[in-house]
Amino acid sequence: MLIYLLRRLAYVIPTLIGVNLLVFALFFLVNTPDDMAREALGDKASSPEQLAHWKASRGYDLPLLWNGGAAGAAKVTRTVLWTKSLSLLWGDLGRSDMTRELIGPALRERVVPSLCVSLPVFLATLLLNIVLAMQSARRRGGAFDMNVQLLCVLLMSVSSLIYIIAGQYAFAKVMRLTPVSGFQPGRDMALFLALPVVTGVVSSLGGGVRLYRTLFLEEMGRDYVRTARAKGLSEARILYVHVLRNALIPIVTNVPLQLLMLMTGNMLLENFFSIPGLGGYTIGALRSQDFAVVRTMVFLGSVLYMLGMLLSDICYCLADPRVRLGGGARP
């Protein structure tokens, strides 16, 4: 397992370099440092001198990929790619190109509101998915199952945006139960989070229930279930103890990945509910062509994704004794 982990970690660096290069290429294919400077300064302040100063103050006066005028290693290190993009690999997040705000503290400040929304959404969705899928699988072909399937298809057919707007209209405007939008830490936090969490859960329910139902049905057809029934175990015990334990393996192993990805925030929810999290931070950076923040958020997403994948593998190994990392399955 250790060798496997080391090997996986060794893959991380070239992958991150690849992601960085890709983001860099995509960003600078459609933007130039001049474009960024104009965006920051506005049309009225973009004289050649001001553009030059903006670029120089932020390090965009360097060549993008290759500094032919420099000597030795500086041909590579005195470039925008090295100073702005690859610097992330050694933890230098830098400053926002637009506000000059340090990105590290900004991430720390915004990750909490993001998690305040995305974590309850994730947990509640997971729980509801499992319960509904289990009940649906248990009553396969019955009225309950049919209704749940129909509901799932309906839920999946509607855009998340509609849930948000309809939720705001119904719960905040018509029934006046929660604020339309906003965020307040402390005592009132639950009041502000109730609506985004409910809409987040409803909008992500359909697909999960259908997937989990399939997993449960697959498990329920296995021999050990038949054996358990033959032994006279109650249906509840068969389902909630034996079937659930086995069916949860693919679910639980995916949890670390999803949990880590929660940190990057939910752009749509944060945007409409004015939650000062990382989703909104990313949208703002994309709108203002803030390369420093964009590449940091993509980099952060990549790191978390790879870390999540690694943890998933480990969880899989722990959850299923038959699986060994770095080798074949145990006999």
Binding site: K173, P179, S274
Partner: peptide, 18 residues
């Protein structure tokens, strides 16, 4: 001054007197 990214929530809050 409250930061709202979308116009619809602002409109609803105005209607509610907030």
């Amino acid at each position: 001054f409250n930061f709202e990214r979308e116009p619809l929530p602002i409109w609803m809050k105005f209607q509610q007197g907030y």
